[in-house]
Simulated scan of single mutants.
Amino acid sequence: MNGVELFLLGRTLMKIGEEALPTEGLGDQPTNVRTVLIVVSDVRAHPGSAIGEIASRTGLPQSAVSAAVARLREAGAIITEPDPRDRRRLLIQPAPAISGRVEQIRSTSIDATLAKVLDTDDPQRVAEVTALLEKLTRHLTPQALTRLRD
């Protein structure tokens, strides 16, 4: 495998993940799912960060980070609090408890989406691919990216 193949695999996996996420009841959203997931991943890796710091680390525009933070706060996935050193800034933390919406998202199976992508109705094949993805997930965590950047 080379870097291009890995990049394309990653992009394919992101698209499959986006498709598998439940969207019912959300209405129109100003931010896309990918941006929200990038922000939540960064917040989990760097709790207590300000919006500008998240934008700097992720390469996302500050306006996109602000919109994602608002969406995540509304969903109960994060909390914000004023920075005690500069009350104009908000510090973002993962929520101490998992909200109903976050629980719904985390508990939604990818099986139907994988079956569609794999063009199969064989549950054994879907389970096999799911097991491979779970193994990759254990090895390639979001925290692993910090080692890449060091």
Rank of each mutant, 00 (worst) to 15 (best):
42 D>L: 09
43 V>R: 01
44 R>K: 09
45 A>Q: 08
46 H>A: 13
48 G>I: 07
49 S>N: 00
51 I>D: 03
51 I>C: 06
52 G>R: 05
52 G>S: 14
53 E>P: 08
53 E>L: 13
54 I>N: 06
55 A>P: 01
55 A>T: 03
56 S>F: 13
57 R>P: 13
59 G>F: 12
59 G>V: 02
60 L>E: 07
61 P>E: 05
61 P>L: 13
62 Q>L: 12
63 S>G: 12
63 S>E: 02
63 S>T: 14
64 A>Y: 11
64 A>N: 08
64 A>H: 14
65 V>N: 00
65 V>P: 03
65 V>K: 00
66 S>C: 03
66 S>E: 00
67 A>V: 09
68 A>C: 09
71 R>T: 13
73 R>L: 05
74 E>Y: 04
74 E>I: 04
75 A>E: 11
76 G>C: 05
76 G>T: 13
76 G>M: 00
77 A>R: 09
78 I>K: 04
78 I>W: 02
79 I>K: 07
79 I>C: 04
80 T>F: 02
81 E>R: 15
81 E>C: 06
81 E>L: 12
81 E>S: 15
82 P>Y: 01
82 P>W: 04
82 P>A: 12
83 D>I: 06
84 P>S: 12
84 P>L: 08
84 P>T: 05
84 P>K: 00
85 R>Y: 05
85 R>Q: 09
86 D>E: 12
86 D>L: 09
87 R>T: 14
89 R>E: 00
89 R>K: 15
90 L>D: 12
90 L>Y: 02
91 L>Y: 00
91 L>M: 06
92 I>P: 01
92 I>D: 04
94 P>L: 06
94 P>E: 00
95 A>E: 03
97 A>W: 02
98 I>M: 15
